Amino acid sequence: MKTTRKREFLRQMDQVVPWKELEALMAPHMPSPGPKGGHPPYPVSVLLRIHFLQLLLALSDPAAEEAFDDVPAFA
């Protein structure tokens, strides 16, 4: 697989960000699935990574959603 700038950026982000520690801080504040079912909440790791990408790349919510649909490296 070719190493693109986006893939390299994500690799570097994984090396720098203390994901496990941040996930542990956020986990107690995340919603749990409701008794009536519905969509289960996204995992903390996914939400945290999306948030970081939005901040670092200055993406709005719709732009982040589009990036995840268009760019396989972000998924």
Score class of each variant (00 low, 15 high):
31 P>F: 09
37 G>W: 09
23 E>L: 09
75 A>R: 12
13 M>P: 14
32 S>C: 05
32 S>L: 09
49 R>V: 03
62 P>L: 03
43 P>R: 09
14 D>R: 13
55 L>P: 10
19 W>T: 02
3 T>G: 02
41 P>Y: 03
1 M>T: 00
42 Y>G: 11
3 T>N: 12
7 R>L: 09
37 G>F: 00
9 F>W: 07
60 S>I: 03
42 Y>F: 12
15 Q>R: 11
57 L>N: 10
63 A>I: 00
48 L>T: 02
23 E>K: 14
57 L>A: 10
34 G>A: 09
1 M>A: 07
22 L>S: 09
64 A>P: 09
27 A>Y: 04
44 V>H: 13
62 P>D: 00
63 A>M: 12
35 P>S: 04
17 V>R: 04
32 S>H: 13
19 W>H: 03
31 P>D: 09
75 A>E: 04
25 L>K: 10
59 L>Q: 12
36 K>A: 03
49 R>F: 06
4 T>N: 05
2 K>A: 06
32 S>K: 12
11 R>W: 15
71 V>L: 07
16 V>D: 00
57 L>D: 05
5 R>W: 05
36 K>V: 06
15 Q>W: 08
49 R>P: 01
73 A>M: 12
56 L>N: 10
54 Q>C: 13
74 F>L: 12
46 V>D: 10
24 A>Q: 13
19 W>C: 03
53 L>P: 07
60 S>P: 00
37 G>S: 06
41 P>N: 13
